[in-house]
Amino acid sequence: MKKKKMVISQETMDIDFVRKVEALSGTSVRRCFQCGKCSAGCPMATFMEHPPNRVVRLLQLGQWQRILAGRSIWYCASCETCSTRCPNKVHLASIMDALRKLSWDAEGPSKESYVQLANKLFLQNIRTYGRQYEMRLAAVFNVKSGQFLKDLMLGPKLITKGKLKMFHKKNRNMNEIEKIFARIEEMRKKGEAL
């Protein structure tokens, strides 16, 4: 990726994509003047191939495919340090949310699959049970990610300490929760929401 030449032209400046990000995040991508404070304070920058300020710069230059193909957006912890310290009020944490959503909708061209799998299972848990069922979350994650032995030693200890519940009650608002999911899907189908 580093060696790949970047071509910037009228065609590559996909302003529609930037507008979508701005609508979803409610913040301006164009306000960023690259001071780098976001990356300086980012606890996750060390795990990213493009630190936060570079993500915004790439976005400004219309190079969003590079961002979506990488793992940077999936390694953001949503700690909000960047948004807190930005001197020009760019809410970068919300931009990260918007980028993840657009990547998610495009069915994740990113190779970072573990974080996406965890998110998916978490949301499935809400739709199925109403509340998080941690035991199932961890077990299904291990099976689906092929890491059968991950945190295996922690399991028995957590169960004896009462921290992992074997059974889970369904929430009484399940109907209402399902309707929220369905109405959002409906709105998106009709083009009333991004």
């Binding site: 918007a98 959503k101 998110n119 978490f122 949301l123 848990n125 809400i126 109403g130 998080q132 991004l194």
Partner: peptide
């Protein structure tokens, strides 16, 4: 019920806002 925590707003802010509003 669940507020959606980080995973919901990470990939679907509208869902996160709706779960919290409810």
């Amino acid at each position: 019920f669940c507020c959606g925590a980080t995973p919901a707003h990470n990939v679907d802010e509208l869902l996160s806002l709706s779960l919290c509003a409810k």
